[in-house]
């Protein structure tokens, strides 16, 4: 199965390709939120590099968030266009589970708290247990970093923190005496390829926003043009 993975939930934009012949490549194509400019051209280059055309794709895997809204829109619209255009299947994964599976592959074990930077002083967060498998302990939610830090410092149990939300609020998270900071901070494209190969395809991908649109909009409106 030829699989393309697209990850645009953070400031980093990454793609991965795994071919039927077993080749697997992952690229970080941009690190500074230029998703619109780099994504499609990078996919075209990656396909060419493996001597593939878009219509040879059997599946597109996309990170549906939570994360940066602008990046998610670009990634999701691109994944929709590619799967619709070629007729290949579409699979969705979340940025938080990609962080967890990425850490698991790196050998992290125990309790893992994944934090994606949500801007506006908040992080998108989900807790996992990593042993032989990766198990979600909570569902994804929005939290204030300080509250997360206090919760774990009070709890006292050993815990590992990972994600660009941890990097953003490094000083807060470093203050947890029983905490370890993981350095892999972006959702894993290798994990996206692996999870995407086994998941059931979906007809329509729902982005994981975790915030109401009107809260984001702050009642600002524009004129129709």
């Amino acid at each position: 199965m030829n699989i393309l993975a697209i990850e645009t939930a953070t400031a980093v934009c990454a793609i991965g390709l795994r071919t039927t012949d077993g080749f697997e490549l992952g690229w970080v194509v941009d690190e500074d939120r230029h998703h619109t400019e780099v994504l499609t051209s990078s996919i075209a280059r990656a396909l060419a590099q493996l001597d593939l055309r878009a219509r040879d794709l059997d599946r597109v895997v996309v990170d549906r968030g939570p994360g940066l809204f602008t990046g998610l829109r670009v990634g999701l619209a691109t994944a929709l266009g590619l799967s619709e255009g070629t007729g290949c299947s579409l699979v969705a994964v979340t940025s938080l589970e990609l962080l967890a599976h990425g850490a698991h592959e790196e050998g992290t074990r125990g309790t893992l708290v994944c934090c994606v930077d949500g801007r506006r002083g908040e992080v998108f967060i989900q807790n996992f247990r990593l042993d032989d498998e990766v198990t979600a302990l909570t569902s994804a939610s929005v939290a204030v970093p300080r509250a997360v830090v206090i919760e774990w410092a009070t709890n006292g149990a050993p815990v590992t923190f990972t994600g660009d939300g941890v990097e953003r609020y490094l000083r807060d998270f470093a203050a947890v005496p029983n905490g370890t900071l993981e350095h892999q901070s972006v959702p894993s494209i290798a994990a996206a390829l692996r999870l995407g190969a086994t998941r059931e395809p979906v007809a329509q991908v729902e982005p994981m926003y975790l915030r109401e649109a009107d809260a984001v909009a702050n009642f600002s409106t524009r004129q129709r043009s």
Binding site: T40, R55, T70, V74, A77, T78, G81, T86
Partner: peptide
Amino acid sequence: GPGLVGSLLIGLSAAKAYALAWD
């Protein structure tokens, strides 16, 4: 363009993807 950037990006990204899909 011109228009709402968050809206424009969706059509533009999809259009590029269809272009790549159909060559």
